[in-house]
Design a protein around this nucleic acid. Structure first.
Length: 818
RNA sequence: GUCGGCGUGGCGGAACGGCAGACGCGCCGGACUUAGGAUCCGGUGCCCGAAAGGGCGUGGAGGUUCAAAUCCUCUCGCCGACACCA
């Protein structure tokens, strides 16, 4: 064996590139589909390549890399892939902002190259053989293939939908491109609302399963499950027909979740877009109603959030008849009722709904109380009410239903409505079908052809992919693209010029990783079933709803199509917090990003990685400090000197104990293993720092550099290896380890060896700490009490008396209550 | 407005019914040194005290408990998500 490299100073720049090359050359992170070891699919959310990565992005990849290295050492066959969410508007925006000189594809490819290099210099490893790039025809061919599957299964359809239209660009704008009702590129041009045929995916078909299956996701953050549940927004209610006075045969269908308040209806409201508005409005009200309709339409286009104070409304002049009590109530039109939810019409119960209450107050409409608080307070139906009472209570002023509680009342009234045939129970969702059409350039073309004779004709699978042309302009403006022949009849036809929402691309990429080179299908079901579900998915909370919901939807559709066994794609989800600097989230636009390149140059990748892990609990936001990285730098130098130059620590005491050291090793293995498993990376770093401090104390106490010492060093190096893999590998070699540290087995701890023989017993008198005793672990209450009473300070605190009560927590505390 | 999260030293944070402030940054003092933005040693919540020691302390007010940063109620502040979903 050649002479060991000797250097007592830690110079990360000298070792990091070397190990990065070795890992790549040896294919350390290549996943073997045929391995017999238990599999572990470790996934981080793939990035949108919008430019160089900063340390805010990097947190995600550092955590993911730590986990994949940790799981490998624990004996799992780890699939740890990476790719690029490469289609999307920012590529177009950026190209335009730079004067149109850069083609979105070139811009994207350039950014990918930069980001990939940055991941490399941080020592973050992936199985790059499985790399996917969503804008690559080899990928989006299969996105198109899956679209056809959705189409065949009736899960994709076209319907009219309003879109934002810029009259100058003659193009559709995404919601984010509409600023104060104006085009983001033309601040003096008002955006128009146009109704266009748009493609939708029928995610609402899966609303119940997407909601109910959240219960299966025990290892998801509660927060994310709540957000998804709210987003789906299932509500149980009743649809009721209100006949319209003077319009025989005409009726107004409303949806309510509070049928128990039906006797409190004092008016009705139609959404401005409701088809009955025109029919019912009397001539005297036509102008007022028209104004509301117009204003409401404008309002939708301008900033809706700012327009919630004043409600717009006008009476139609028509009246509805309450089918429960026969009362005539006026029908209004108001902007606070949405055409897109329920039936687009409501019964207004101002006594028990705050929005109805506000509206009634604004327009002087009557307010009636029909639910009394359960405490039995008075309930004069006409008394002045200061706010809507929205809690459950007891039905009053409600005819034969008086005295029922809200819950029972709901059922009885619903029964009555169904019995009389004037309505039925109904479940509604806040979730809408997924509008996937984009009328831009940089996206995946929707693979259908419009034929005058055959209608919508799917592009035959063998003709996929429908290639995105190189010419950078909206597809609708590219006749070379859309001029085609009908695949069915051969006549002239028009290719679909919509592209797909990029969330489609990212709804199945984790499946493609399992067989990234399959050129016969989107993914190989056998391999997908082998690796799926993803065991650990790590990413930002900003994707808590859309990306995760859409991916779950895809998984379920593919399951129903017989392509996948698992019904949920991600077993365990971790959402990491954001890195801030100067109080703001790190971002390119704010200019407060810290480049990994600079940190690597100055302090090394390992220190940068440890600092990101040490900065705070990974699920919480953290404030970046430019100075605090000094701690991890010193820690690595410290470990280096312990291994390479232990003689530099002068002997200054004489209390080194091999037994203490040995115990400390096992305690640290336990602590670090548990912290990695529990995502407490910050305390894992702290534990290793303490361990290094303990090793130094041992040396300074005159400890022998024997096998016990070397065992401690090897353990330290292996435990820190997932965090600081370059230093880990280098020191592993210098300690005489065989093979790569990345391939070494994770240290196991001996629970018996980790037990402390002596513990500090806190002695309290009346709950106040009066003494601390060092006692043998496991002593009995009697022994502990005797020791406690032997203490001068305890006796003083007891004033010579005897405790009337003793609380004893073994090995921790004894509390004497006088 | 609804839902959720978070408030602990100068700073990042630890402890998550049982010693509040682990670990680190910063700061103060010392050692070694020609020198040090290196390394090592000691100190560092606040108040009283020379010390021993004592008191007070986890946004605020109550409560439960032998014991509360931790559990409960109310309240204030910050952050996030959804935002007229009947």
């Amino acid at each position: 064996m050649a002479a060991k490299p000797r250097r007592s100073t830690y110079v990360p720049q000298e070792i990091e590139p070397k190990w990065q090359k070795i890992w790549t050359d040896r294919g350390v992170m290549k996943a073997d589909d045929a391995a017999t070891k238990p599999k572990f699919y470790n996934l981080v959310m793939f990035p949108y390549p919008s430019g160089p990565l900063h340390m805010g992005h990097m947190r995600n990849y550092v955590i993911g890399d730590l986990l994949s290295r940790f799981k490998r050492m624990q004996g799992f066959e780890v699939l740890n892939p990476m790719g690029w969410d490469a289609f999307g508007l920012p590529a177009e925006n950026d190209a335009i902002q730079r004067g149109g000189g850069v083609h979105p594809e070139d811009w994207t490819r350039g950014n990918i190259a930069i980001a990939k290099r940055q991941l490399g210099i941080m020592g973050v490893l992936y199985d790059w053989d499985r790399e996917v790039t969503t804008c690559d025809p080899s990928y989006y061919r299969w996105t198109q293939d899956l679209f056809l599957l959705f189409l065949e299964r009736g899960m994709a359809h076209r319907m009219m939908s309003p879109v934002n239209w810029c009259p100058v660009d003659k193009t559709v704008l995404a919601n984010e491109q509409v600023i104060n009702g104006r085009c983001w590129r033309h601040p003096d041009v008002e955006v128009e609302k146009r109704d266009l045929e748009q493609w939708f995916l029928r995610i609402t078909t899966y609303a119940d399963r997407l909601l109910d299956d959240l219960a299966l996701l025990d290892d998801w953050p509660e927060k994310v499950r709540v957000m998804q549940a709210n987003w789906i927004g299932r509500s149980h209610g009743v649809e009721v027909e209100f006949p319209i006075d003077g319009h025989p045969g005409e009726s107004m269908r409303i949806y309510t979740t509070r049928p128990d308040t039906l006797f409190g209806v004092t008016f009705m409201v139609l959404a401005p877009e409701h088809p009955l508005v025109d029919k019912l409005t009397v001539s005297g009200q036509r102008r007022a109603v028209q104004e509301v309709v117009e204003a409401a339409r404008k309002e939708r286009e301008i900033d809706r959030m700012s327009s919630e104070v004043k409600r717009l409304g006008a009476a139609t002049g028509a009246n509805a008849i309450n089918p429960l009590n026969g009362e005539k109530v006026p029908i209004w039109v108001a902007d606070y009722v949405l055409i897109t939810y329920g039936t687009g019409a409501i019964m207004a119960v101002p006594g028990h709904d705050q929005r109805d209450y506000d509206f009634a107050r604004q327009f002087g409409l009557p307010i009636r109380r029909v639910i009394a608080p359960p405490d039995g307070s008075p309930h004069d139906p006409d008394e002045e009410i200061e706010a809507a009472y929205t809690e459950p209570g007891v039905m009053v002023n409600s005819g034969q239903f008086d005295g029922l509680d809200s819950k029972t009342g709901f059922e009885r009234v619903a029964d009555y409505i169904e019995l009389k045939g004037i309505g039925k129970r109904s479940v509604k969702y806040r979730l809408r079908d997924w509008l996937i059409s984009r009328q831009r350039y940089w996206g995946c073309p929707i693979p259908v052809v419009h034929c005058e004779v055959d209608g919508i004709v799917p592009v035959p699978r063998e003709d996929l992919p429908v290639l995105l042309p190189r010419a950078y302009k909206p597809l609708a403006d590219n006749a070379d693209f859309w001029r085609t022949k009908c695949p069915k009849c051969g006549r002239d036809a028009r290719r679909e010029t919509d592209t797909m929402d990029t969330f489609i691309d990212s709804s199945w990429y984790f499946l493609r990783y399992t067989s990234a080179h399959d050129d016969t299908q989107p993914f190989d079901p056998e391999l997908a079933n082998h690796w799926m579900a993803v065991d650990q998915y790590t990413g930002g909370i900003e994707h808590a709803i859309l990306h995760l919901l859409y991916s779950r939807f895809f998984q379920k559709v593919l399951h129903d199509a017989g392509r996948l066994e698992a019904t949920e794609p991600f077993t365990r989800l971790f959402t990491q917090g954001m890195i801030k600097r100067g109080g703001m989230v790190m971002s390119k636009s704010k200019g407060n990003g810290v480049a990994p390149d600079d940190l690597v140059d100055r302090d090394g990748a390992d220190a940068a990685r440890i600092y990101e892990l040490f900065i705070g609990p990974p699920d919480e936001d953290a404030e970046w400090s430019d100075a605090a990285i000094a701690g991890p730098v010193r820690f690595l130098q410290h470990v280096w000197r312990l291994v390479e130059a232990p003689e530099s620590f002068a002997v200054t005491g004489s209390d080194a104990s091999a037994a203490v050291l040995h115990r400390r090793v096992h305690q640290t293995i336990r602590k670090v293993t548990e912290d990695y498993d529990g995502f407490h990376f910050n305390t894992a770093v702290a534990a290793l720092m303490e361990f290094a401090n303990a090793l130094q104390k041992y040396l300074q106490g005159g400890g022998a550099r024997d096998e016990g010492w070397h065992f401690a060093l090897r353990t330290l190096v292996l435990l820190m290896n997932p965090m600081a893999p370059h230093a880990g590998e280098e020191l592993w070699v210098r300690l005489g380890g065989t093979g790569l540290a990345a391939d070494a087995a994770w240290p196991e701890y001996d629970a018996a060896a980790a037990v402390e023989p002596e513990v500090t017993l806190v002695v309290q008198v009346a709950g106040k700490v009066r003494d601390r005793l060092t006692v043998t672990a496991g002593i009995s209450e009697d022994q502990a009490l005797a020791s406690a009473l032997a203490s001068e300070r305890v006796r003083a605190a007891l004033n010579g008396g005897r405790p009337s009560k003793v609380i004893f927590i073994p090995d921790k505390l004894i509390n004497l209550v006088p």
